Amino acid sequence: MTARTPFRRLAVAPIALTGVVLAGCVANTPAGGSAGGGIAVTSSSTDCAVGAASAPSGPVTFTVTNSGDQVTEFYLLADDGLRIVGEIENIGPGISRDLVVQAQPGDYFTVCKPGMVGDGIGKTVFTVTGDTVQLPGTLQEQVDAAAANYVAYVKDQVAQLVVGTQDLATAYAAGDVATAQALYPRVRANYERIEPVASSFSDIDPALDAREADVAQGEAWTGWHRIEKDLFPPAAADNGGVTYVALTAAERSSYADRLVADTQALADAVNDPSYTLSIDAISNGAIALLEEVASGKITGEEEIWSHTDLWDFQANLEGARVAYEGVRDIAAGKDPALVATLDQRFAELEATLSRYGNLQSGFASYTDLTPAQVKELADGVNSLSEPLSRLTATLVS
């Protein structure tokens, strides 16, 4: 993972309707703009063509036209490619809709999602130039926008998780161990980024993510870690002195089907029209993700069979960063010193972890770390956790 560029943020206007214009603003008219002054975006089944690669800071309108045969979505992502800073959903074939954002200077990504599944297509850098602009709206409106954007991020991660889990389940049930092993830590990243959200559904999270040591006697053990143990079978010495017996084809199929079903239950829960999150829940989620790293990933106890703990560490850290950045501007207005500290500590921990790999090319096995390296990572987690623990109190004060 490379060093991050300075933070870039957008405040999303709570408007995403055809023909809407922000009152009192001057329309952006860069090359490729639509006739109405916005930036034309064409979403097809194979591409996401954006009519301009940049715009000046301030109100920016993307006019998204669906030229394909599936319902599509359009996203504007932060420079990490994860945090959703603007989105417009349910654009039917032949329909055009506008996304209006208040853009701060920096680099972003545009992406379309035909069929509204997977991680999208046509991901392209989009740059905003000029000076910083003031966040629009009242504090409550900013809070509401932060909550809406984070819920959109959660839905996006779960949507990607649904697709990836099906791929993993298919390979695993078919006995394609090599493919399933390669998919296991990559697909789990989508889950680990929003783990506190999953944990809030008390009937779903244990079914998906219970470790063997956490399963009470007599209860069924299902989910990721049951499959992990079968994909990365332990030696007898690491299995209580008992030789591990591989699951049968029928058992693999049963566990794979259950994983898919429970993942879909999570998707149904976060896509319920009544589902929302308060700003304190978002910041507490960031705090909880660092606690997850401290209690399981940094100790090697989470992925005890595959030793892919650093993958989870990275995903937890990314999820915490997304939650924090979503409320950062609000916190900055109340405690700029805390925000400066958090910016620095996030960057330092990310730089330390990047020495061991990344989610694209893979991470070192946890078993390859020396005690000194584990301590260095733990010290970085502790250094970030302390100021992060003060974020919620700052936001709600």
Rank of each mutant, 00 (worst) to 15 (best):
Ala315Ser: 15
Asp230Met: 04
Pro93Gln: 10
Val41Met: 01
Ala27Leu: 13
Ser67Thr: 15
Gly58Lys: 07
Val158Phe: 10
Ala216Arg: 15
Thr63Ser: 13
Leu135Phe: 12
Val125Thr: 10
Ser54Asn: 13
Asp280Ser: 10
Ala146Met: 09
Val20His: 11
Val162Ala: 07
Tyr356Arg: 09
Ile15Phe: 13
Val64Cys: 02
Glu141Ala: 12
Asp119Pro: 09
Asp205Met: 03
Thr308Tyr: 14
Ala323Met: 12
Ser57His: 10
Gln344Phe: 06
Ala145Thr: 06
Arg328Gly: 04
Ala198Tyr: 12
Gln142Leu: 06
Ala213His: 08
Thr138Phe: 00
Asp280Val: 06
Val381Tyr: 14
Ser96Leu: 08
Cys112Pro: 02
Lys334Thr: 14
Leu76Gly: 03
Gln264Pro: 01
Pro93Cys: 04
Gly333Trp: 04
Ala340Lys: 13
Glu348Ile: 10
Ala31Pro: 03
Pro233Glu: 02
Leu317Asn: 12
Asp312Asn: 13
Ala261Gly: 02
Asn28Thr: 15
Val163Tyr: 02
Ala148Trp: 12
Pro136Lys: 08
Ala189Asp: 07
Ser354Tyr: 10
Ser67Ala: 15
Pro233Ala: 03
Leu266Ala: 11
Phe74Arg: 04
Ala337Gln: 09
Ala178Pro: 06
Thr308Asp: 10
Leu76Ser: 03
Val260Ile: 15
Glu350Phe: 02
Val260Glu: 09
Leu208Trp: 07
Trp221Asp: 04
Leu259Arg: 05
Leu247Arg: 01
Leu266Met: 13
Asp343Gly: 05
Ala315Gly: 11
Val245Cys: 05
Trp311Asp: 05
Gln166Pro: 00
Leu135Ser: 13
Ser96Cys: 09
Glu292Asn: 14
Asn239Ala: 02
Ile91Phe: 03
Ala3Tyr: 10
Glu195Val: 06
Trp221His: 04
Gly33Ile: 01
Leu395Ile: 08
Val162Arg: 08
Asp131Thr: 15
Arg226Phe: 01
Ala13Trp: 12
Thr170Glu: 03
Ser283Val: 00
Met116Tyr: 12
Glu195Ala: 11
Ser96Ala: 13
Glu89Thr: 11
Asp238Gly: 03
Thr72Ala: 15
Arg83Ile: 07
Asp167Asn: 09
Asp131Cys: 05
Cys48Ser: 05
Val100Ala: 11
Thr72Arg: 09
Ala372Ile: 05
Val143Gly: 05
Thr367Phe: 04
Pro206Arg: 03
Pro56Gly: 08
Glu350Thr: 02
Gln344Gly: 00
Pro336Asp: 06
Gly94His: 10
Thr42His: 04
Gly218Pro: 00
Asp368Leu: 15
Val151Met: 04
Glu251Val: 03
Arg355Ser: 15
Val111Leu: 08
Thr5Gly: 12
Pro56Ala: 13
Ser34Leu: 13
Leu161Tyr: 07
Glu87Tyr: 07
Thr2Gln: 12
Glu73Lys: 09
Val26Met: 09
Ile279Ala: 03
Asn149Leu: 10
Glu386Asn: 01
Gly24Arg: 09
Val245Lys: 06
Gly326Lys: 00
Gln360Leu: 08
Asp69Ser: 14
Ala237Arg: 07
Ala235Gln: 12
Arg252Tyr: 01
Asp272Leu: 09
Leu384Trp: 06
Ser67Asn: 13
Asp80Ile: 01
Ala178Thr: 13
Leu391Trp: 05
Ser254His: 01
Gln157Met: 14
Leu277Pro: 02
Leu391Arg: 05
Tyr191Glu: 04
Ala267Lys: 08
Gly38Tyr: 06
Gly106Glu: 10
Glu89Phe: 14
